[in-house]
Structure formats: C-alpha cells, structure tokens
C-alpha cells in the first residue's frame, strides 16, 4: 500500500497532542485552557489522516464525535452545572474506554508496519493500551468512591491525587511513544510516499 508520509506524520502528531489535551487540565478560574474536546478534535484529525493506512480507524469516528460533544458541553460552565448526570457520565466513560483501547490497538498495528526491525514501539503501545484501560477504570472508580466514601475521604483524596499524577505521567509517556512512532516515518525531506507491506 502506498501512503502519504506527511499525512501519517501529521496524523501521529495530532494523536500525540490530542492525548495531552485529554489528560492535562490547566484551569484559569473555572475555564480550562486545555479543554478535553480539543483533544477529541485532534484525535478526529488524526483519524482523518491515518484512516488511509488503517481503515478500521474510521469506524471509531461516531464514538469520537459523541465524546467531543460531551466534553464540549462539560467545558461550558453555564451549561455543565445542569448536565452533571451520572447516566451520561457512565455512558461516556464506557465509550471512552473502548475508543482509546481500539485506537491504541490500531496505533500499535501501525507501529508494527512502520518501526525499524529492532524497535519495539508496537509492544510499548500495546502495554500503554492495557495500562490506559486499567488506569481509566481505576481512576474513575476511585473518583466515584471519593464522592461516596465520605468517612474515608482523607484516604481516597490522596488516592485520587496519586492516581492523577500517574495518569498524567502515563499520558506524557504515551505522547512520547507516539512522537517516536512519528519519527520512524521520517521527515518531509525524504520520499513523500511510503510503501507499507500489504495487508494479509
């Protein structure tokens, strides 16, 4: 399969920055200057760029659109106070776990095709995929527990803080892996097209 090198690089760049926006929050007052819905839009752009080499990625678009809408609503403080509904939160947590798992699986498959023979980026991305699913589940369960285990809030608050730190570090490490994968593609001065091994 022949594919545009620049498009793949751009897609991987969008994916890496998308994960930063999704997992790092910097607020000024009640407004986040790294809103999560921007991360979703970056991932959407990544899918657009990479779906030529990984067709399955386009199947994730409907889920990502829903997530972007949900994150966008939550970003607006005027609206978010009225949509703090556990029903919708649980729905989107479940969708997000599946989305990120499948997305990172596809990134790992892409790494298998693009990485140099001695590299193990595919395995690294698969490990991150698993870690991400586990951390996502654990983090949201602990956050939920923090709201209901009032007597133990002194403990659960520290667990949430610790989990947040691990979460952010994992997101940064994931970003680094995606940038490394991008670097495997080479820079724009090399051949524009990239020949990938045919799919089985």
């Amino acid at each position: 399969m022949i594919s545009d090198r620049a498009s793949i690089r751009t897609g991987l760049t969008y994916a890496a920055w998308g994960y930063l926006f999704l997992h790092v929050d910097i607020n000024i007052g009640s407004i986040s200057i790294l809103p999560a819905f921007v991360g979703d839009l970056l991932l959407m752009s990544a899918i657009h760029c990479l779906s030529a080499v990984r067709r399955d990625l386009s199947l994730l678009k409907p889920l990502l659109i829903l997530m972007a809408v949900w994150h966008g609503i939550q970003w607006l403080p005027v609206v978010s106070q009225y949509v703090d509904i556990l029903f919708l939160d649980l729905l989107f947590y479940a969708v997000a776990i599946y989305f990120h798992f499948q997305f990172l699986t596809d990134m790992a498959a892409l790494a298998t095709e693009l990485q140099p023979p001695e590299a193990h980026l595919d395995k690294t991305l698969l490990h991150f995929r698993t870690l991400y699913a586990l951390l996502y589940t654990a983090f949201h369960l602990v956050q939920y527990g923090n709201t209901i285990l009032i007597r133990y809030r002194a403990i659960t608050t520290w667990v949430v803080i610790g989990g947040t730190i691990i979460w952010v570090l994992a997101a940064i490490a994931l970003m680094v892996s995606l940038f490394s994968l991008r670097n495997c593609v080479g820079d724009e001065s090399a051949e524009q097209t990239l020949e990938l091994p045919p799919k089985e």
Binding site: L86, L90, Y93, A94, I97, Y98, F101, Q102, T105, L126, R129, T130, A133, L134, Y136, T137, H140, L141, Y144
Partner: peptide, 16 residues
C-alpha cells in the same frame, strides 16, 4: 485484549 475492555466497561458500570 478485548476481554479486558469488556471487563473494564462492565466494572465501571457495575460499581456505581
């Protein structure tokens, strides 16, 4: 690995 996702989704629903 899809089994892991299935479990994670089920747990994140079951507890709340």
């Amino acid at each position: 690995g899809m089994g892991l996702v299935s479990w994670c989704v089920a747990i994140i629903l079951l507890v709340p």
